[in-house]
Simulated scan of single mutants.
Amino acid sequence: MDAIGLYIHIPFCKSKCPYCDFYSGKGNYEKYKNYTEILIDKIRYWSQQVENSVKSIYFGGGTPSVLGSELLSKILFEIKNNFIIESNAEITVEINPDTGKTIDFKLLKDAGFNRISIGMQSAVQNELDELGRIHSANDAKITVIRAKEAGINNISLDLMMGIPHQTLNSLKESIDFCAGCGVTHISSYLLKIEKGTRFYATRDKLELPDEDMQAEFYLFAVDYLKSLGYEQYEISNFAKNGFESKHNINYWKCGEYIGIGPSAHSFFKGKRFFYGRSFSDFEKNTTTFDCDGGNEEEFIMLSLRLKSGLVFEEYKEKFRHSVSLHLLRKIHRYADAGFMEIDSQRAFFTPKGFLVSNTIISDLI
């Protein structure tokens, strides 16, 4: 029986960023305590449905760190008390640099957290202002230092590309900042204007880089991060050797996971389902079936998000037959155009191919 991942959604933020479409809102300590009790109830429920061991736990949001170290530790204690957690499990919590200045990292480390992901987005103040962030680059640096002092050395920083008024020089400045902090992982992704966000409402007034400039940002980041020792392993993720996110790789490898919290998605026993974007649905434990998961098309689509790509032997082992000649012919055409590479073992995107991967994958499957 394969080990699974656990995702815990913390739907609270001090303020809502204008680009964010994740389910979150403002809270206070009473709300945080009440939500913690509801979470614990659902953790106990799901532990009765799951016999699998757990290989990764990820606290996302929202801003999980607004709960504070004691409530986060209490939630993790309940998970460890109710699920079979593998001894080398990766246990991540997202931290906002604003709360990272005060949170007790020693308490988090003692509770079992061994990885943190810091939502920095940029090291350039005017870009942070554009994004509505309530922290400075120095706050992020302090957060990294405090986490390391507590013994948590597996640290990721988020970096956004395509921010209004961003330049190649300012992107380089942010990348240099991340490398200078000595973090082990960097998530670097292009800004998307999502429906329902404040940026979407004002999209015609935003001075955003055009598609050619965004492509230049992305290709520069891939090359420059590699020169600094951060190898790309997924479209938007780069890591020092051995520090790739186990939790994220489980998603892209079509591994199963349980998501607990309003708006959280799950893939378990071949089914994809989710909680609605409301506290009441979550409190009532109401989930909605999405679709069957893990079929051939989904496996190809998710595998190709990884730099390792579609490994033919893995595909054959899972589906009991080889990749079709029709698919291979299509891949060869994209390889000839420089968007993919293919050999006897696997097919994968080049950095140029990753930029248009959604379009290519739609054609392939």
Rank of each mutant, 00 (worst) to 15 (best):
V93M: 05
R133W: 08
Y233R: 02
N285G: 02
S87F: 12
S344E: 15
Y23S: 00
N81P: 07
G261Y: 11
V66Y: 04
N52K: 14
R203G: 00
H247S: 00
N126P: 10
I175G: 06
G270D: 07
A335F: 04
E86S: 13
V66G: 10
K284E: 10
V50Y: 11
P164F: 04
P351C: 10
I193P: 12
D336H: 08
K31G: 07
E234R: 02
A111E: 05
F319E: 08
H321W: 04
Y200V: 05
G182R: 02
Y200A: 14
A201I: 01
K109V: 01
S56A: 00
N82W: 08
I95A: 06
G309I: 00
R320I: 03
Q232H: 07
I85S: 03
C254D: 01
F349Q: 00
S87Y: 11
E70P: 08
K74Y: 10
T167E: 10
K330W: 01
D98H: 06
D129Q: 06
E86N: 15
I331F: 06
I186C: 13
D110C: 07
V323K: 01
K80W: 03
R198P: 08
S15G: 08
D21K: 10
N153F: 13
I260D: 00
I91L: 04
H135V: 00
N28Y: 13
F289D: 11
E207V: 14
A123G: 06
L306C: 05
K253L: 13
P18W: 05
I84F: 12
S227I: 07
L159P: 06
S156Q: 04
G60Q: 02
D129R: 11
L206S: 10
T92V: 01
R203L: 12
S344P: 03
L306N: 08
K141S: 07
F22G: 08
I103Y: 04
I235H: 00
E94K: 03
F282S: 13
P351D: 08
F267W: 02
Q49M: 14
M340P: 12
I8P: 09
E130W: 07
R320T: 04
A137T: 12
F217P: 07
G353V: 07
K271W: 08
K246N: 10
E244M: 11
N96V: 06
Q345E: 14
H321V: 01
F217A: 06
F199Y: 14
E37N: 14
G68D: 12
R198Y: 09
V93E: 04
T286E: 14
G276F: 01
N34C: 03
E298V: 09
I43Q: 07
S344R: 06
N28S: 09
L157F: 04
G338F: 07
L128T: 04
F83A: 04
S117E: 01
I163A: 06
S117F: 03
L219W: 03
I8W: 13
F349R: 04
G68H: 09
D223N: 15
S136N: 09
D281G: 10
F274T: 03
L225Q: 01
E313L: 14
